[in-house]
Amino acid sequence: MDHDLCKLNLVFPVTAEDQILDFLLDSRPALPGFTSLRVEGHGAGFENASPREMVRGRIERRLVFIVLDRARLESLLAELLERIAVPNLAYWVEPVEQFGQFK
Rank of each mutant, 00 (worst) to 15 (best):
V11G: 04
G100D: 04
L25M: 09
L37P: 04
L68T: 04
I84M: 12
D26L: 15
V64M: 03
E97Y: 02
R70G: 14
S50L: 06
S27L: 08
S27T: 14
W92T: 01
F65A: 13
E74P: 03
S75P: 13
A49D: 13
S50V: 00
S75D: 13
K103S: 12
F99C: 07
G33V: 11
M1C: 03
L73K: 12
R38N: 15
R38W: 12
F34M: 11
P29L: 05
L81N: 15
L21K: 11
V86L: 00
L73T: 03
L73S: 11
E40M: 12
S50Y: 07
D4T: 00
Y91P: 05
C6N: 00
V67N: 12
A30M: 13
L76N: 07
T35I: 08
G33R: 13
R61Y: 02
I84T: 04
R52S: 14
S50R: 06
L31M: 09
R56Q: 13
L89H: 12
W92R: 06
R83S: 14
L24F: 06
V67L: 06
N88D: 14
E79S: 05
D4S: 07
G45F: 07
E97N: 10
H3M: 07
W92N: 10
E60S: 06
L5H: 11
I20L: 14
R83G: 03
Q101R: 08
R56S: 13
L31S: 02
R62M: 03
A71R: 07
A78W: 00
I66N: 08
I59E: 12
R58N: 04
G43R: 06
R72C: 06
F23I: 00
H3W: 01
G43Y: 11
P13T: 04
V93K: 03
P32I: 11
K7N: 09
P32N: 06
L10G: 09
N48W: 11
M54D: 07
S36N: 10
E79W: 04
V39P: 10
P29A: 13
F102W: 06
P95W: 05
G100Y: 04
L31Y: 10
L21V: 10
N48A: 08
L63S: 05
V67C: 15
L10Q: 10
L80E: 12
A16Q: 09
F99H: 10
E47S: 10
D4E: 08
G43T: 01
G57W: 00
E97C: 05
A16H: 02
E40F: 14
E79D: 10
M54H: 11
